[in-house]
Amino acid sequence: MTPAARVQAAIELLDQIIEAARAKGAPADRLTADYFRQRRYAGSKDRRAVRELVYSAIRLCGPTPNSGRAAMLALAAKDKAIAPLFDGSPHGPAAISEDEKPAKTGIAPSWLAARITASGLKGADAWALLERAPLDIRVNALKADRGSLTLPEAGKPLAAPQGLRFPSGTQVEQWDAFREGLIEIQDHGSQWVCAALNPQPGEVIVDLCAGAGGKTLALAAATGNAASLIACDTDKRRLGNLAPRAARAGAQVDHTVLLDPGREAEALAPWLGKADRVLVDAPCSGTGTWRRNPEGRWRLDRGELERLTKLQDHVLDIGASLVRPGGVLAFITCSVLDEEGADRIAAFLDRHQGWQAEAVDIPLGRPQGAGMRLTPHHDGTDGFFVAILRSA
């Protein structure tokens, strides 16, 4: 592909990503993989160059662009090497006309940028949400130890006891250590918010929003398979992925529970008021994961954020019903918005008399309300909020 053809390919791919963002369709990484799957002629250098153009444009444009061309024009205004490639060549984009306007740049759509500012993130704090993320792994303590494990590439040891960091794009999924369950891909911040729950051997621990089970596996490793783990979720497909992952990791999960929204109490009846610890990794806007999914800011609207905060209150109340007297509830979101963090804990404590927020005992993050917030700028992690609540 010529340089101009790469720009045109990026424009076509951006058009698909913008349309999918508006329709809440497939994510950018899947669309990118599908795009190149249908264009086998594109070599590895072409794919890498187009992907770089696409994600640079996504990170640059705050509001959803009108088109892929407008997004690429915004990038061309910043990178002077791109504008001459709008040359009208057979496989390149048409020349830039005088009346064409580039897409607006910024941290996010204006309403969302205002929420980020109101939550205390400004300047470098805010822009770091869109930086490129490294790749972090957790060495699975059930099968290996960071100090003695040999990997194809040497990772940078992290503060988390089994954490290692590699450059973005490192193909760890191709390593034998990954296929054999010796390592798991997990952001450094995610490793610490799991540790904040402080799981102990012999306890009954419920992972209420387990998804595909990344944090469930971390809890199993932290307790040496000596805790009774119950993994729950409303998504049958994602929850179904846990069993093969647990088998690969050598992790023991006593029960997987598929929840029917609105009827969770029926499925969770055996554990009501009996769990020593409950982890609520609540569904959220994902504002803390924009480094990996920068088009996520084009998908979020006010109505969706309101729906998510109501859902977070709901799952917090369910989690509280499972905790035994004196037990612990951990609330986590991969969001930097106070609406999905400090505000939710304040509302919970208003609803549940006798419960108390406790200090979050992790070496990363800064206090935010009654919890702790981790950010890319200060902690080098994805954005997280975590709070620890103890029952009366």
Rank of each mutant, 00 (worst) to 15 (best):
R6T: 03
I11M: 07
L13M: 11
I18P: 00
K24Y: 08
D29H: 15
R30Y: 13
F36K: 13
Q38M: 13
Q38Y: 12
K45N: 09
S56W: 05
S56A: 13
S56I: 06
I58D: 02
T64V: 15
S67A: 07
S67D: 01
R69P: 01
L85I: 06
F86H: 02
P90G: 12
I96W: 01
T105M: 06
A128I: 11
L130Q: 11
I137E: 00
R138H: 09
N140V: 06
K143E: 02
G155M: 04
L158N: 02
L158E: 09
R165H: 09
F166Y: 11
T170I: 12
Q174D: 15
F178K: 04
E180W: 10
E184N: 12
E184V: 11
G202M: 11
V204L: 15
G214A: 11
T216N: 02
G224I: 12
D235H: 10
R238G: 11
L242S: 09
A243R: 13
T256Y: 03
P261Q: 09
A267M: 10
T289G: 03
L300T: 07
E304A: 15
T309C: 07
L322I: 03
L322F: 00
V323G: 00
R324F: 03
G327I: 12
V328H: 07
I332V: 15
T333R: 03
E340P: 11
G341N: 00
R351F: 09
V360F: 05
G365Q: 05
T381L: 03
V386L: 03
I388K: 13
